[in-house]
Amino acid sequence: MRKVVFFLVPRLHLLDLAGPAQVFSTANDLGYRHDLYYVGETDEIGTAQGVPVKARRDWPELGPADLIVVPGWRSPRLAPVPPISAETKRVLRDHHAGGGSVASVCSGADALGAAGLLDGRRYTTHHDLTEELAARYPRASIVRDVLYVVDDRVITSAGIASGIDLALHLVAVECGAEAAAKVAREMVVYARRNGDELQESAMLRHRDHLSDLAHRIQDVIDGRYTDRLPLTDLARGAGVSERTLTRVFTSATGLTPLRYQQLLRLERAEHLIGHGATVEAAARAVGFEDARMLRRLRSRAPEPVVVH
């Protein structure tokens, strides 16, 4: 039975803890056994969401097969030093030096950095914290805008919901892809994402505007991006001219409606290909008649970051 120890830091984000903990707990329910521990430097840990959680003060005996996870804490900006003691840093270093694995969610990467575990390694964190951590740990290599990174038994994730992706990956490595798929299905996870997928989907990246018309058109495209969506039909449904629709949509999102639809198709196709689908099968699944257009779009897109 593998031990998984969550080290709890004051003002931790509940989902940073609960997401990965639920993955391992669900794995237990399905027969893939993990022994879960919750350790802190005080008996009770206040969370960012106001719900206190209990922790034990003593660490269980750990071996090379075991895992320590440091969930993130609330940090619009990072404190000058992470809220962990010298003794906790030593535990993290010693566990890794002994062959064990350590992981972080969101700002938890700051704790790993303070323990010296990021030096000379690749890592990631929440997109709001990348510049601060990059400056704080210049001997480490930050990988921006990916879900998680694995480097020499140091596993870091972007934060919040990506902690679920990280934990599913760890279950897949330990127990097999079928086990991870069963856990994801039991948890009603829409899709198990690879580490090199973007932290923000196209549906989110192009929503930071105030145009009601553009939002309404995006709602239509988001729900039907695999269908043919002629501009005339979109404009008629919105009650505006094609010219007005194109002008407003492009001004709000930086993309034409067609380019936005293509981006959604490309992103979904890349996800399918990353999970073993052929280019031809992925192209058909996202609404292309054949793979030629998908290949053209992929050739124009920036090269994805490959996470080993």
Results as ranks from 00 to 15, higher is better:
40 G>R: 03
218 Q>K: 09
57 R>E: 03
153 R>H: 15
14 L>F: 01
253 T>P: 03
249 F>M: 05
259 R>T: 09
74 R>G: 12
71 P>C: 12
222 D>G: 00
78 L>T: 08
85 S>L: 05
257 P>N: 07
158 A>C: 08
192 R>E: 14
227 D>E: 14
19 G>D: 03
116 G>M: 10
11 R>V: 04
159 G>K: 01
161 A>N: 12
19 G>R: 05
281 A>I: 12
21 A>N: 06
124 T>P: 12
75 S>M: 02
91 V>P: 01
178 E>D: 14
80 P>K: 11
132 E>N: 07
258 L>E: 13
190 Y>F: 12
51 V>P: 00
27 A>P: 02
206 H>R: 06
123 Y>H: 13
304 P>L: 06
283 A>R: 01
65 A>I: 01
148 Y>Q: 02
111 A>R: 00
291 A>S: 14
128 D>S: 13
50 G>I: 13
146 V>W: 04
153 R>D: 04
65 A>N: 15
201 S>M: 06
158 A>N: 07
212 D>N: 09
252 A>Y: 06
86 A>M: 06
135 A>G: 11
286 V>W: 02
72 G>V: 09
291 A>Y: 00
274 G>H: 01
87 E>R: 11
240 V>G: 02
112 L>F: 00
73 W>Q: 11
48 A>D: 15
75 S>W: 03
161 A>H: 08
176 G>P: 06
120 G>E: 11
7 F>N: 08
192 R>F: 01
157 S>T: 07
94 D>S: 14
109 A>G: 03
59 W>F: 10
130 T>D: 08
56 R>M: 11
191 A>F: 09
275 H>M: 11
299 S>H: 08
51 V>H: 03
77 R>Q: 15
125 T>K: 11
219 D>T: 15
136 R>C: 01
295 R>S: 13
29 D>A: 14
36 L>H: 11
181 A>Y: 02
292 R>A: 13
106 C>L: 10
282 A>I: 14
269 A>M: 06
269 A>Q: 08
